[in-house]
């Protein structure tokens, strides 16, 4: 008789842990966006942290929701963002390079330069 109560409380606690882990990664992504030195390094921080952060927060909400159709919708959102976020980052990085955003001074090797010049000419 007590068992279902304990299980649901445990699930809630796990859900809260997931929520705050997700927010922690969001925060880290924002701090990365603030601190990094150029577009490409900023993309590194935001793409990875956003992708995992949204997955963790939405999994937390899925645990709260349980086995319903809404959970499947949330799962669809997770998969969609998991596929599209790296694609968008890839497109942004290429667009920024062709637009003429220079990599920062610390960049030691740049093998994309010739290719970009060839594409622009």
């Amino acid at each position: 008789m007590m068992l279902p109560d304990i299980v649901s409380v445990m699930l809630d606690i796990i859900a809260v842990i997931f929520l705050f882990a997700g927010v922690f990664f969001f925060m880290a992504g924002s701090i990365g966006l603030y601190r990094m030195v150029d577009v490409y390094t900023r993309l590194h921080a935001t793409t990875k942290c956003d992708t995992l952060g949204q997955a963790l927060v939405l999994i937390g909400i899925m645990l709260y929701e349980g086995w319903t159709l809404v959970s499947i919708k949330l799962f669809l959102i997770i998969v969609f963002v998991l596929v599209t976020n790296p694609t968008a980052a890839h497109a942004m990085a290429k667009g920024a390079y062709l637009y003429g955003v220079k990599p920062c001074d610390q960049t030691s090797i740049d093998m994309y330069k010739e290719k970009a010049e060839e594409m622009l000419s």
Binding site: G32, I109, Y112
Partner: peptide
């Protein structure tokens, strides 16, 4: 990423390879 971002020295040495 978290380790790099929260490090006060920001230890990065970016490079573009192919």
């Amino acid at each position: 990423v978290v380790r790099i971002v929260l490090d006060p020295k920001l230890p990065i040495s970016p490079q573009i390879i192919k």
